[in-house]
Design a protein around this nucleic acid. Structure first.
Lengths: 156, 156
DNA sequence: GACATGGGTGTTACTTTATAACGCTTCGGC
DNA sequence: GCCGAAGCGTTATAAAGTAACACCCATGTC
């Protein structure tokens, strides 16, 4: 993932899908929220709220307050356009918004990329394990640290 | 879990096992570290570092600095005696130290209890999903939010 | 026993991450 | 055009985590 790919396309794509989804739902994807979404998507690495804040200040010239970013992120997470990576206190664009899901992530320790997967096996196993103990699942969090394929092949 | 059980026993048990494990490994479970472990175990709810810090200050009279607690927690996590719940920035005693594992948790939104499970199905599914994508797993994090059995039966 | 060594702890200061409270503005429905 | 709710700005503050440095004390060595 960290290798070459047309990332500009990833971003444009994400924005287009976001526009469509929000229009469909009647949710307000304001200029600010759209801009924050774009910044989250600036790579496939999870980005911290304060990193995004800095981008806003530096690239757009306006010195925003933390709350500005947090509120936008909150909206984006609610809409399923962005996921929060709990173990990193950071945010990453959702690869497949639209269908609700809570996200499973393979986070590479070397390059920092977070690959989102939606593995039915993992989901099923969690649901089963929970059910066995009478636990009602609301929101599963799966964040796997390790080494991605390309970083195993090209160690630094 | 939040219901009645001899929690004094849980604590005593955890301390005894910790003593044994550290002796066996030649790790130094000092008075401070042992005390912090005891405070982590004061319930089955994950506790924040600052909550533990307050306990130390109030119950023991000595005003400790954050680092004191963080260092003790770091040691305990390394030894596998305590797990960190990423999605809560909090720590909880490990139910089955000794064998290395990274912990899977069912965290109840109502009572706050975090039940540790070690479900082979979940572990296997994650390993398989990762392998399929050429990802080498180092440390899986599984934290499931929802409602525990007793909180479903006795809603508040 | 003296001594060196390294791990553990204390202390101060600081960074990063996140939220509270309040008011103004703007959008969208009527 | 008016109104209510949602969005945004601003200031201040809380919560979580780390850096740097000094001291202490247990341990092993001579």
């Amino acid at each position: 993932m960290s290798s070459l790919h047309d990332h500009t396309h990833c971003i444009a794509d994400a924005l287009t899908r976001a526009d469509a989804l929000c229009a469909e739902r009647g949710a307000r994807l304001t200029a600010l929220r759209r801009r924050v979404l774009e910044l989250v998507w600036s790579s496939h690495r999870p980005r911290g709220a304060y990193a995004i804040l800095e981008d806003l200040s530096q690239q757009d010239g306006k010195a925003a307050a933390p709350l500005t970013v947090y509120r936008a992120l909150e909206f984006l997470v609610e809409q399923g356009l962005v996921h929060r990576i709990e173990s990193l206190n950071a945010y990453v664009g959702c690869a497949a918004p639209g269908n609700v899901h809570s996200g499973q992530f393979l986070v590479c320790e070397a390059c920092g990329d977070a690959a989102e997967i939606d593995d039915p096996g993992v989901g099923t196993a969690i649901t089963a394990a929970a059910a066995e103990r009478g636990f009602r699942v609301q929101r599963p969090t799966v964040e796997v640290r390790g080494l991605c394929k390309s970083c195993q092949e090209t160690p630094r």
